Computed example of a mutant assay.
Amino acid sequence: MKIGNIELGDRPIFLAPMEDVTDPAFRLMCKKFGADMVYTEFISSDALIRLVNKTTQKLSICDEERPVAIQIYGRETDAMVGAAQIAEAACPDILDINFGCPVKKVAGKGAGSGMLQNVPKMLEITRAVVESVKVPVTVKTRLGWDANSKIIVDLAERLQDCGIAALTIHGRTRAQMYTGEADWTLIGDVKNNPRMHIPIIGNGDVTTPQRAKECFDKYGVDAVMIGRGSIGRPWIFKEIKHYLETGEELTSLSFEWKMQVLREEVLNSVERLDERRGIVHIRRHLAATPLFKGIPNFRETRIAMLRTESVKELFEIFETIKPAEVSE
């Protein structure tokens, strides 16, 4: 599979852009475990053109994580064009436009998946951004605004006509947010539309190697994007790649090996921020990891783990969690 001139291999697996998750350290970790392409956190075009320091910091990428995409969002054409040009100067391999974020503070203002209610504006922005930069431009969006407006099959053609190099589709509507099950049927319909010639990337509820393989085999997508399934489990890319290559589950990753990965995540976060903020930042990963699922009487340990602001205390808690206690 290729996006523009970027070769991504056969059945590639991507790390989805996620706010407060896909910082440089996490992207590098996922890359180390086999992610074929990673995305930055999504970046506000309005904040970027005003050169807000916290926003411009999100443009920081390094060669070790390539290929890497910078993702921007917004609702005004001029701001999106300006942001695209600033982002291009950071030398990403790909520039991605977010038309999929469902959260109220984004979609409620007409950006992200809010653009699904204003398709002419979406197309205007897409066309303008494509024309304003030389780097390949891609789009990430959803099936539609709600169950009564699943417009993705037609919309995909229109976005392709704007000159995008690939399209990522999350298999939910904006109204669904992250509830219910992702519907890959329409993603497959887009991919199998004979008028579509750009790569189609599927996203939504891929949390196992078996499901990743099924999405390639059943729906024919060119790539699979992993979002929430990687939080607290960056080794999912290693598991999926092994399964795609061998047809067998990867059983060599021990409980202690995975715990060491979590320790590394904690230390990376603390190094990037500081001890208190770094631990607060990583709590989402610790709360989401499936590693602790099935441990009996774990509630008090979880509470203590998510309350501490000290690396020493957190690691001492980690030491009390033994692999023999895990029921798998």
Rank of each mutant, 00 (worst) to 15 (best):
S252T: 13
K218A: 06
D205E: 01
A69K: 04
G144P: 10
R195Y: 05
V103D: 02
A166I: 02
N118E: 10
R263V: 04
F237L: 02
T308P: 08
G294E: 09
P323V: 08
G112N: 08
P296K: 07
L267T: 11
M259I: 05
R277C: 03
I6N: 03
E7M: 01
A156W: 03
L48C: 04
D161R: 13
G100H: 10
K58Y: 15
A304Y: 11
P323H: 07
A47I: 00
K121H: 06
S149M: 10
A147D: 12
G4T: 03
A107Y: 08
F255T: 00
G227A: 15
V190R: 09
I13H: 07
K32C: 02
M37K: 06
L143S: 08
D222R: 08
I321D: 09
G220F: 01
E275Y: 00
A90R: 12
V266W: 01
D10K: 13
P209D: 02
S269W: 01
C91A: 14
Y39V: 04
I200Q: 03
L306N: 11
R272Q: 13
E249L: 14
T126M: 00
G171R: 05
P199Y: 05
I321W: 10
T141R: 05
T179N: 15
A25E: 08
W145R: 04
G247I: 02
L95Q: 07
F318W: 09
Q85R: 15
G294Q: 02
T173F: 11
W145A: 00
S230N: 12
P296C: 11
H242E: 12
E316C: 01
L8Q: 03
N268I: 00
E309F: 01
V133L: 05
V38S: 12
N297T: 07
P12E: 00
D36L: 12
I236F: 04
Q85G: 00
D36G: 15
